[in-house]
């Protein structure tokens, strides 16, 4: 187990390293010109561009900039020269090109928002989706199954940016029966947090529940046709024991996989969700940073998203070993 974790961590670090190099390279190879961006929509004179580039450290060769960025993560660094230098302790992700604020501080502000959305909606989607999927698999062909299939189809074809905006428009602004989406730290105002997060949670939760429902239903139907379920029934077990102890237990590993990967990938999807609900999380931050050619923030958000994907992959693998005795981590 320990060996496995060490090996996976190493692979994860290499993955992240490759992603960081690619992002860095793409940024400069692609259409990014932060200094010109900061000049606004006017042709900047060369002197001003140069001064901005110098202040951002963009005049050095790319590999040097990359080296500085990476070493900053591990050892921290000073940004700027002489008396103007800003201390940026490890793990230093640089400072925002736009506001000169340490990127880590910016990320720290956005992460609780994104995490709140991700975890809350994940809980709703799993509870709702899995139970609906299983119930419909057990009552195959019944009204619940028909409803569930319709729900899964509708959910899969609806997009968060459509449904989200629609619900906001109708529930929040027209009927005024739902609190408008906003983030307040749960430590400050727990009820306000619940209330402000509720619409994103429900929307995203219900939409992803559709995926879970479809998946859980298919998985459960497959498991129900497995020989060992027949065996369980042949033993004379009650339907409840057959469905839960035997069938559900067996479909758990695939459901956990999907759950883990989805949770890991939620940060990647946060861009759309957070833009839709106007939540100041990592996703919205990333969207703005890309538009602004704000490299340090782009790097940080990409790495963070990749980190979570990698992390949840490891977690899912570990969960596998817990759930399925046939799997050994090595």
């Amino acid at each position: 187990m320990l060996r496995y974790l060490i090996k996976r961590s190493l692979i994860a670090v290499i993955t992240l390293l490759m992603i960081s190099i690619t992002t860095f390279w793409l940024f400069f190879a692609g259409s990014a010109n932060p200094a010109a961006q900061m000049c606004g929509a006017k042709a900047c004179d060369a002197a001003k561009i140069e001064r901005i580039n110098k202040s951002l450290g963009l005049k050095d060769p790319i590999h040097e900039q990359y080296g500085r960025f990476m070493s900053g993560i591990f050892t921290g660094r000073e940004i700027g020269e002489g008396a103007d230098a800003i201390k940026c302790p490890a793990p230093c992700l640089g400072v925002s090109f736009r506001t000169s604020e340490p990127v880590l501080d910016i990320i720290e502000r956005g992460l609780p928002v994104s995490a709140s959305i991700a975890v809350g909606s994940a809980v709703i989607s799993v509870l709702l989706g899995v139970s609906l999927g299983i119930a419909s698999a057990l009552k195959r062909g019944g009204w619940l199954d028909k409803f569930s299939i319709g729900f899964a189809l509708t959910g899969a074809s609806l997009q968060i940016f459509f449904l989200g905006l629609l619900l906001q428009m109708v529930l929040v602004y027209q009927l005024k029966i739902w609190d408008r989406p906003r983030y307040v730290p749960p430590s400050e105002d727990f009820l306000g947090w619940l209330s402000g997060m509720s619409l994103p949670w429900v929307t995203l939760g219900v939409l992803s529940a559709a995926t879970y429902a479809r998946f859980a239903r298919a998985e459960m139907l497959e498991i129900l046709s497995e020989d060992f379920v027949r065996t369980a029934r042949a033993k004379g077990l009650t339907p409840r024991a057959v469905n839960i102890k035997h069938a559900l237990r067996a479909s758990l590993s695939s459901i956990v996989t999907i759950f883990g990967l989805q949770l890991g990938g939620l940060l990647g999807g946060a861009a759309i969700t957070e833009t839709t609900f106007d939540m100041p999380g990592i996703g919205k931050l990333a969207v703005k940073a890309v538009g602004d050619d704000n490299l340090p923030i782009v790097m940080a958000t990409v790495l963070l998203a990749a980190f979570f994907v990698v992390l949840f992959n490891v977690i899912v693998d570990a969960m596998y070993a817990v759930i399925d005795p046939r799997v050994k981590l090595s």
């Binding site: 497995e226 020989d227 060992f228 027949r230 065996t231 369980a232 029934r233 042949a234 033993k235 004379g236 035997h246 237990r249 067996a250 759930i323 399925d324 005795p325 046939r326």
Partner: peptide
């Protein structure tokens, strides 16, 4: 009550007929 008690069954492929977990 009949199943497994009075009448029981042995299946073809025990690997798939036994619960893997």
């Amino acid at each position: 009550e009949v199943r497994g008690q009075q009448v029981s069954m042995i299946f073809q492929d025990p690997l798939s007929a036994l619960h893997p977990f």
